[in-house]
């Protein structure tokens, strides 16, 4: 089975029923996407498939139809994605466990909705849980990222 992750094609020897998150973390050692709940209720495992946010714990690798991007492939330390830069600017992370999922969700959301209202942001991000309660900073960072992307 072939799977392209962050621009690199991998050949996998796994069962097609294996969740994508297991493939990323255990087979490919790409550990940015986190295991939280395992049932798509927390958002910590969020990655992109062809640019759309997907909970990688709840899609089997056999059902993946497109190229996968994880937090490792969204930007680089020298060239951060606008959402990552906004996260740094607002010092969003506290413990950080949920943050790669939050950032991937926000990046996908802003790709679809470049001028979100506060309500849009809350609705888009409310399925990504943060036990540290960084939600006010998440909302501000998403607004900053939207502004950056619109000025680019």
């Amino acid at each position: 089975m072939k799977l392209t992750v962050n621009g690199t094609e991998h050949t996998l020897d796994v069962e097609p029923e294996m969740p994508l998150l297991w493939v990323l973390r255990d087979e490919l050692k790409i550990t940015g996407p986190k295991y939280g709940c395992g049932i798509a209720q927390c958002g910590a495992c969020t990655v992109h498939v062809d640019g759309s946010a997907v909970r990688s714990c709840s899609i089997t690798v056999g059902d993946v139809d497109g190229d996968v991007t994880t937090i490792e492939g969204l930007g680089t330390p020298d060239s951060l994605h606008a959402v990552q830069a906004a996260w740094v600017a607002h010092q969003v992370a506290q413990c950080g466990y949920c943050q790669s999922g939050q950032i991937m969700q926000a990046a996908s959301f802003l790709d679809l909705n470049s001028e979100p209202t506060d309500e849009d942001i809350d609705n888009a991000m409310s399925a990504n849980l943060c036990r540290c309660g960084t939600y006010p900073r998440i909302r501000e960072a998403v607004k900053t990222a939207a502004k950056t992307l619109n000025e680019a």
Binding site: A40, T46, S52, A53, V54, R55, S58, I59, T60, G62, D63, V64, Q105, F109, L112, N113, D120, N123, A124, S126, A127
Partner: peptide
């Protein structure tokens, strides 16, 4: 699609 696509979680089998 305006906020969070259904297919973010409801995808595949």
């Amino acid at each position: 699609v305006e906020t969070l696509e259904c297919a973010t979680c409801h995808v595949g089998s």
